[in-house]
Amino acid sequence: MRTFLGRLPRIQTALWLVIMALLSAAPATAQDLGGVTNMSRSPGHGTQVEYVAEGGKTYLWYPGNTNILKGQWKVEDGNMCFAYGANSYNPVTKQRGGWECQPVRAYQGGIAQQVSGDPMGLAGRRAVPFDLTGQSISLDQILASVINPGPPAIGGDFSCEGVIANAERSKSDMSIAAGTYFSGMFMGKRCVDVDYARAFALAEKSGTGVDGYLKVLRERAATGNPRAESALRRLGYELTAQ
């Protein structure tokens, strides 16, 4: 299977870069920019997710790649810079290997959504959870789709219909169905109406617990998301961790 190595994130269209370059660079440091997982979406690269770790390492989940791409990042002269190895290739800029930089403000402007830390475990993964090619789903939906990874029970139907039909057949099936009901997605595709109560019940019953889902709901509530606030109240949880 062909692997597209090193397609770099967050390089916007030429017009976007020109506009952002005219603005003064944001006074950001490496401490400000690390320790987060970002999702960006652009015409050239599509949807991509990246864990920008503190200390200068980065882990990119890029559409078309079969493996997580490891790289490095740094802040230099007001620019955010990335490098992914000598064999990497950026299909937008046509550059092979080496560092590529852009103004910090342009980089930050290209981030569609962000979450603290590495909740998807990209730093510890080799293979990508699924192919992001053609996906336009949100970071929350992507997170919910991979929060409880694992195959269905042997002999199970690894499809949206199968996951819903076999939701309570085994603990493994319960875990996968919980993630599906939480996001409404399965393997990056629309599957079922979002049902937080069903997701939490299945997660508890499977033994995996609800901590990951609870964190996501609280982060949504913190942005003023009324549906997340309502769900937390209905489920009997505080809007913020105590």
Score class of each variant (00 low, 15 high):
Gly71Glu: 02
Gln72Cys: 10
Lys74Val: 14
Val75Glu: 13
Asp77Glu: 13
Gly78Ser: 03
Gly78Leu: 04
Asn79Gly: 07
Cys81Glu: 04
Phe82Pro: 09
Ala83Pro: 09
Tyr84Lys: 10
Ala86Tyr: 05
Asn87Val: 11
Ser88His: 05
Asn90Tyr: 11
Asn90Phe: 07
Val92Phe: 08
Val92Arg: 03
Thr93Val: 10
Gly98Leu: 12
Glu100Gln: 14
Glu100Ser: 10
Gln102Asp: 10
Val104Ala: 10
Ala106Glu: 06
Gln108Asn: 09
Gly110Asn: 12
Ile111Thr: 03
Gln113Glu: 14
Gln114Asn: 06
Gly117Arg: 03
Met120Ala: 15
Met120Pro: 04
Leu122Ala: 06
Ala123Asn: 13
Val128Gln: 03
Pro129Leu: 11
Phe130Arg: 01
Leu132Cys: 01
Leu132Ile: 05
Thr133Gly: 10
Ser136Phe: 02
Ser138Pro: 01
Gln141Lys: 11
Gln141Thr: 14
Gln141His: 08
Gln141Trp: 11
Ala144Arg: 08
Ala144Tyr: 01
Val146Trp: 08
Val146Tyr: 10
Asn148Ser: 13
Gly150Glu: 12
Pro151Ile: 06
Ile154Arg: 11
Ile154Gly: 08
Gly155Cys: 09
Gly155Ala: 11
Gly155Tyr: 08
Gly155Ser: 10
Asp157Glu: 15
Cys160Phe: 08
Cys160Trp: 03
Cys160His: 07
Gly162Ile: 00
Gly162Leu: 07
Val163Lys: 02
Ala165Asp: 07
Ala165His: 02
Asn166Ser: 15
Glu168Ile: 07
Ser170Gly: 05
Met174Pro: 00
Ile176Met: 13
Ala178His: 07
Tyr181Thr: 04
Ser183Phe: 01
Gly184Leu: 01
Phe186His: 10
Cys191Tyr: 02
Cys191Leu: 04
Val194Gly: 09
Ala197Met: 04
Arg198Ile: 05
Ala199Pro: 03
Ala199Lys: 02
Ala201Pro: 01
Leu202Cys: 04
Ala203Pro: 00
Lys205Gln: 13
Thr208Asp: 13
